[in-house]
Nucleic acid binder design. Structure first.
Lengths: 230, 230
DNA sequence: GTCTATAGGCTGATAGAC
DNA sequence: GTCTATCAGCCTATAGAC
């Protein structure tokens, strides 16, 4: 929990620590600092200070600031993709899969609260890091399969799996990535009313998704009536 | 459309232009560059070059890079808030209000395609610019009133207006803010399949929202059954 | 209002001692 | 592997000529 330290000054001497502890401390520092501030907003010195490690070790162990950033980024994306794999369990039907989808997202944000921020920041950046593209595609594939399975089982109406994906992931990412900003703004007195809790939002979104995906015609006519079948 | 130029070199001399043209050119440059790259990712020289203007004029007219950024930010937020005000028209019922809500968002992204990116970047930043907080609250208030009106008119079931707001705005912002990244990744061959169009997504989200808000019990039982009425 | 020139700070990276 | 010292580059901001 506390600040990881790979080497420390004690009295007058310098104690050396495990090099793997150094790497780990730097990765932890990156995981904490990069989501705030973004890549440009964090200096090597910031990272070294938080890790309790010498500046030069960033270049030594990761080949530079970018290397440290990418290493953390990839591990986070891989972890998210891995968690979502539980959605495709053996005997789980589509509705249960959807529940697991939300559970996986909740679990991720519980253990890595600023993953959504990191995620979003990377998507907003000029060029997505090639190393994480496979994980990204894997994440998309999960919701895609979920939508298709629901359709096959008759649990969901037919929707474009990609639209389904963006509606779900977009709302979740936005909410969780901006959660910190809300809390800060709330404490600074900029927001004069209570904000929803993450649990409430996840529950709401799950409810809306189930209702929105329920088979059958829309309870309200759309503007233009179409023929019998599309 | 082309690069705005407030002053230009012709042959050997230097022609002076309207100072308001200078300001305008710089604001346009900021509106284009800040969404990409973010505040840290854009240098004063980048801005001046794109505006066809001298570096020093940024400080002269806006008191520094931050001043130019905030000026553009505030005008964008104000414009979005203004567009959303149409949702609260005189004789519009809730369902029509929701339609206008999506229309306003679509219109905004048509004329200022990278507003969602700017918006999201600001929400992710360490501290939200105080100057835009009022506009932010106004935007929240629109969806809040929309949800409450729908409830009052019997068109929507009862939902927490703030959850409604985040579900809607979150999904829209995410999709549009990452649209550029998708196109880039697609062209770079990182994505091997077609991506949904903005129109398709907006239509999908509107449909899902109407279905999700339709009065009546959820077509699927939730895990815990509650009493007859809440 | 606009431009040139420059000050001054900070950053990422590395050479070389230990 | 770790640390100190240092360098070259870029950045924002401003003083002063026009």
């Amino acid at each position: 929990m506390g600040t990881s330290v790979a080497s420390r000054r004690s009295g007058k001497g310098t104690e050396k620590r495990d090099p793997v502890a150094t790497r780990r401390a730097l990765l932890e520092a990156g995981a904490h600092l990069f989501p705030l501030g973004g890549f440009d907003g964090v200096s090597i010195e910031d990272l070294a200070d938080r890790a309790g490690v010498n500046k030069a070790l960033v270049s030594y162990h990761f080949g530079g600031k970018r290397g440290l950033y990418v290493a953390g980024l990839e591990s986070a994306f891989a972890e998210m993709a891995g968690r979502l794999r539980a959605v495709d369990g053996e005997g789980v039907d589509a509705r249960e899969g959807l529940r697991r989808f939300f559970q996986a997202f909740e679990a991720m944000t519980r253990e890595r609260p600023d993953f959504p921020t990191l995620f979003l920041r990377e998507l907003l950046s000029s060029g997505i890091e090639p190393a994480v593209v496979p994980h990204l595609l894997e994440i998309v594939a999960v919701s895609r399969r979920l939508a298709e399975r629901g359709r096959r089982e008759g649990a969901f109406r037919r929707v474009d799996p990609l639209l389904f994906h963006f509606g779900l992931v977009g709302a979740l990412c936005f909410f969780f990535a901006t959660e910190g900003a809300r809390q800060r703004a709330r404490m600074a007195g900029q927001i004069p009313f209570e904000m929803p809790t993450p649990q409430a939002f996840v529950h709401y979104l799950e409810d809306m998704t189930l209702r929105g995906l329920a088979p059958g015609p829309s309870p309200t006519r759309t503007r233009k009536r179409k023929g019998a079948r599309s």
